[in-house]
């Protein structure tokens, strides 16, 4: 019996005038690797923000570490590593790679405590893990998008989190790097026994690695082993009638009329 670390119970989240997630019930166990898929605007990013306690439920409840999400404190958040969906980084912002990764330590350290040599070691270790150790003194703004993405993964790792939330970690990254990022995440899951929630549009890439897939479109359409979730009828319901077929274990987005 593994412990439940995140528990949605009929939870509803939204913004003024918009319901982003409705009536979600889902348990995520400690050490589980869960992939989250769904079309644009289906509430995937909202799911992450909810787990971080940045939103209040409009109905139902969400528990993380046995704490209601609206009562999550800073010391809880420090146990969750978060890679936000790619935003815009001001390329001129004066910060080095190591300085950015060290920020991952700040929440865990708490107020009034200065980072020590030990924190620096943890940050360097995290950089090593993503293969960016040679860039530690480079300007963050001078790196490519994919390299910056790895640095932000390193920052999440520097928190030494128990839970890792990755919002589209491979979007905008070249194919070889995509595979090394996925390999890295799989390694983290196996070696460090992290609980991982990975949001992606690239279903085929994560399919072999995840324990479970969650299919979202405001409501929870399915949650289970990839083979059970990636059924043509379910996918058509979520992604639209004509657009998705599965063929030989691959989900292919195709123009339906093309086949007729």
């Amino acid at each position: 019996m593994t412990k439940t670390i995140i528990r949605f119970a009929h939870a509803t989240f939204g913004f003024p005038g918009v319901i982003a997630l409705q009536d979600i019930s889902l348990d995520i166990a400690e050490g589980e690797f869960v992939g989250v898929i769904g079309p644009n605007g289906s509430g995937k990013t909202t799911l992450c923000r909810a787990v971080l306690g940045l939103m209040e439920p409009m109905g139902g409840s969400l528990q993380i570490f046995d704490c209601a999400c609206q009562e999550l404190r800073c010391h809880h958040r420090a146990r969750i590593g978060y890679l936000p969906q790619k935003g815009t980084l001001d390329r001129n912002f004066p910060i080095t790679v190591l300085e950015a990764v060290m920020m991952g330590r700040y929440g865990a350290l708490g107020l009034f405590r200065r980072p020590t040599g030990r924190d620096r070691e943890i940050a360097l270790d995290a950089l090593n893990n993503v293969g960016m150790q040679d860039h530690r003194d480079s300007a963050l703004g001078g790196l490519s998008g994919g390299q910056q993405q790895r640095v932000f993964i390193a920052r999440a790792l520097a928190q030494q989190p128990e839970v890792l939330l990755l919002d589209e970690p491979t979007t905008g990254i070249d194919i070889t790097t995509q595979h090394s990022v996925v390999d890295l995440i799989r390694r983290l899951h196996q070696d460090l026994k992290l609980t991982i929630l990975l949001i992606t549009h690239d279903i085929n890439m994560i399919r072999p690695h995840v324990d479970r897939l969650v299919l979202l479109k405001t409501r929870l359409y399915a949650a289970g082993p990839p083979d059970e979730v990636l059924r043509p009828d379910l996918l058509r319901q979520v992604y639209g009638k004509d657009l998705v077929i599965t063929e030989k274990d691959l989900v292919i987005v195709e123009d339906y009329h093309h086949h007729r």
Partner: peptide
């Protein structure tokens, strides 16, 4: 350290326990 973090990315700072 907190001021630097919110200057860089306030939402990220909040999310990571600052």
């Amino acid at each position: 350290k907190e001021l630097y973090f919110i200057a860089f990315d306030q939402e990220m700072a909040e999310a990571s326990g600052v």
